[in-house]
Each structure stands twice: as C-alpha cells, then as structure tokens.
C-alpha cells in the first residue's frame, strides 16, 4: 500500500511574496496531514500527541517553505520532522512517567482507534527509536529504502540494518499472533 507517491522535488519553496507558494503549500498540507498524523501515531501511540506533532511538522515545513530557501523534498522534510519530534515527545513522556508515574501519574486519555492493530504498533514502539522510525515508514507508507534513508537522514545501508533488525525483533515479539494470522 502506498499512501504517498515517490518523494517529489518541489520548486515552489521560494517565497515570491505572492499567493503562489501559499496555495501550493495548502495543497501539500491537505494532502499530507493524515499520513503525517498516522506516522506520528505509530511512534507516540497517542492521537492527540500525533496531531500536535503533525501540526508542528507542517508548521515547520511551512516556515521553511516560506523563508525563501526552498525545500527540495517537502514530503521527506515533513516526515523527518515528524519522526524526530515524535521520538522527542516519547522521550519526554518517558521522563514524566518516571517522575510522575512512580507516584501515581495516569496516562493521558487515549482516543480509541477501534480496528487498529494496537499490539503490532505497541511492538513497533518498543523497538529502539531509529528502528521504530524505519519500520513505521516501511509498513505505513511502503517506502523504499532510499526514501526512508533520505527521510531519516542516514545511509541506505543503515536503513537496511534498522529494517532487518526491527523486522526480526517484531517477528520474535509477535511470533504466535503473526503465525496465527498467517494461517
């Protein structure tokens, strides 16, 4: 499944003081927001947090778009922001949990996603951050290794390692269910 096409190059990032870049960004934002929320959710597990992260990523993308320097690959750029900020968010939540959870903190209420395979995504979130990012982009967006590498800002060979290790870890963690599901 592909929810986004190949990463397009954008020549519209050069602000011209008119409405052109804004209209182009509008279309970009409308087309990308749901996918960005989904990516953020796979890494945070919280719909509210995911919407915030996606919102921040779009805002950051727009600021870069609007500054006049241009963004060569806005889809990749926005996903990179989502991937990094989602991990930041999770780390912060972990710190709060360690501090507050020890004395009774409760999780934020989560919005139910009724048909979502939470066990699968929970297992993704339990992976090391870089593996989780690569796995999320792999399954959620069916992106090839080269595009994942561009989004994560690393070498394709590194992505291959993350995917290899991540998939093996997931297979081990989900083995009974996955095998059952494959029958």
């Amino acid at each position: 499944m592909t929810v986004s096409g190949p990463i397009p190059e954008s020549g519209v990032g050069q602000a011209d003081g008119g409405a052109g870049p804004d209209i182009a960004f509008d279309a970009f934002a409308r087309g990308q927001r749901r996918a960005l929320v989904a990516l953020a959710w796979t890494l945070t597990g919280d719909v509210g947090a995911a919407e915030d992260v996606a919102q921040d990523a779009l805002h950051a993308t727009w600021q870069a778009w609007d500054r006049g320097g241009g963004i060569r690959h806005p889809e990749a750029w926005a996903r990179q922001v989502v991937a990094n900020r989602a991990v930041d968010r999770v780390r912060r939540a972990g710190r709060e949990r360690r501090a507050l959870g020890l004395v009774g903190a409760r999780p934020d209420p989560t919005v139910d996603l009724p048909t979502t395979d939470h066990e699968f995504w929970d297992a993704v979130r339990a992976l090391p951050a870089r593996q989780a990012q690569a796995i999320a982009l792999h399954y959620l967006e069916d992106r090839p290794v080269a595009e994942i590498a561009e989004i994560l800002g690393c070498a394709p060979a590194t992505v291959k390692v993350h995917l290899h290790r991540g998939r093996r870890a997931l297979a081990a963690a989900l083995a009974p269910e996955t095998e059952e599901g494959s029958r």
Partner: peptide, 14 residues
Amino acid sequence: ALDRRGRAAARTLL
C-alpha cells in the same frame, strides 16, 4: 507473516 500483518495494521490505522 509479519509483513502481511504490518501492511494490514497500516491499512486499519489509516
């Protein structure tokens, strides 16, 4: 089997 489950998980999430 993991890949099939992962793609299905992506569809249901979206």
